[in-house]
Design a protein around this nucleic acid. Structure first.
Lengths: 131, 131
DNA sequence: GAATAACCTATTGACACAGTAGGTAAATGG
DNA sequence: CCATTTACCTACTGTGTCAATAGGTTATTC
């Protein structure tokens, strides 16, 4: 289940893309347009900056802006950054996950197939597809 | 993310299907074969019984058994019973979810498309496909 | 130097997850 | 009838995440 972080994060990116005029966009404006608490958006926006998906600038005339063209962002990378993982099961989400039943597990192949389905869907879908 | 309830629940159903010889299968045996705590499986098995997916019988010779042929169970119905919902976002999981932005939401169409993808995948996949 | 806006740390209440503990009720075999 | 087996039931617990709020400090511009 995609949390508000992922959902709001995506809307933040769409807002940044739609209102991009070259200059920085203040979070206050985004919060108002998107009807999301600015305080909560700060958490989301920080992850985006830390993850290198957007950049911020302080002071008057400051705000946030995209660092790439919208068609260069996949929905998958945005969601993965926000959610930590988009893998549907713990066995696949964590590379170091240890499971003694790996070889005889009857469900693992299905999870893997489903995981690929999800992964492909979100990584093929671009931010530009949502504008 | 599918929780242990969903994952174990699926393995329980597979175990019941694989070891079906007409009579009831004690939970103790399933717990040992699947290497899952019997106590924890009790919670899962109760949901299955309450949901009408399996039936139980007390006393010696008792246990649990399927009520349908394995090809009549979809993975989707098993997971939905265990997880409550398999919808990827709150907006779609809850029928009564109120969102003032429904009409202008740029992400909703994508969530709907993805929701259908997930739904179709799991409801087309049958328990018999996992044996 | 005032205003603007990002950036930072901490806290909170609610809830779900992943179990565990300890019992009662029902069915069967001897 | 009674011991055994097995399901069935209620309650509890620790850990963690979610969703959000509060209250600051730093950086930048005019």
């Amino acid at each position: 289940m995609i949390s508000t972080k992922g959902r709001y994060g995506l809307r933040l990116m769409i807002d940044l893309a739609k209102n991009d005029n070259g200059s920085y966009i203040p979070l206050k404006d985004i919060a108002e347009r998107q009807e999301i608490s600015k305080k909560y958006l700060e958490i989301i926006v920080k992850k985006m900056v830390d993850g290198g998906l957007i950049k911020g600038s302080s002071g008057k005339g400051g705000g946030y802006k995209l660092v790439k063209k919208p068609d260069k962002y996949s929905v998958g990378e945005i969601l993965t950054l926000m959610e930590g993982t988009i893998s549907p099961v713990a066995c696949l989400a964590d590379k170091d996950y240890l499971c003694t039943r790996k070889k005889k597990c009857e469900t693992l192949p299905m999870w893997k197939e489903f995981d690929k389905l999800v992964h492909d869907y979100f990584y093929d879908k671009k931010l530009s597809d949502l504008l």
